[in-house]
Simulated scan of single mutants.
Amino acid sequence: MDEGDAPAVLRILARFGAGEPALESDGRSAHVRVDSGPAALHAVLGELKESGIPLHDAGIRRPTLDDVFLKLTGRAATEQEPEPAGKQPANDEREVVP
């Protein structure tokens, strides 16, 4: 979408989303969580077309395991608990995080 269309796009996403729509930092991409992906995408695309808002791309993204973990726990899955002072992890307690 063009940056000037962002307010209208966010209003449309809010009507069909199950959460608060968000604008990406580039100002040209937006997203919202939905309960029924294909039906919501179809409805949003129809509204955008009726509103005369051209898109560069559109799609559905399923949440990753990290997204789900963050939503359920409120913290990132890769955060590590600090080791108590003076304790060194045993070889089998270390983990590699790419």
Rank of each mutant, 00 (worst) to 15 (best):
D67Q: 01
I53S: 03
H42W: 10
A30D: 02
D35V: 13
D57Y: 05
R33T: 03
D26Y: 03
F69W: 05
V9Y: 06
V44L: 10
G52E: 04
T64C: 09
K87W: 04
F69K: 05
R28A: 11
R62G: 03
P82Q: 05
P82H: 01
A85Q: 05
L13G: 05
K49N: 12
L41Q: 03
L23N: 04
R61Y: 12
T73Q: 09
G59T: 04
L65P: 01
F69P: 00
E20S: 13
K49C: 08
P7H: 01
E24S: 07
S36Y: 08
T64A: 15
A6P: 00
A14D: 15
D92Q: 04
V68Y: 00
A6W: 02
L13N: 10
G86H: 03
E3N: 09
D67N: 08
A39D: 11
A43Y: 01
G52C: 06
M1L: 09
A40P: 00
D57T: 08
N91L: 11
L70Y: 06
P82V: 04
K71V: 00
V97G: 10
T78L: 09
V68E: 01
K71M: 02
E20R: 15
A58E: 04
P21M: 14
P84Q: 10
I53A: 02
M1C: 06
S36V: 11
A39E: 14
T78F: 14
R94S: 10
E47C: 03
R11W: 02
H56C: 08
E81C: 08
L55M: 13
R62N: 04
A90V: 00
A14N: 11
D5E: 12
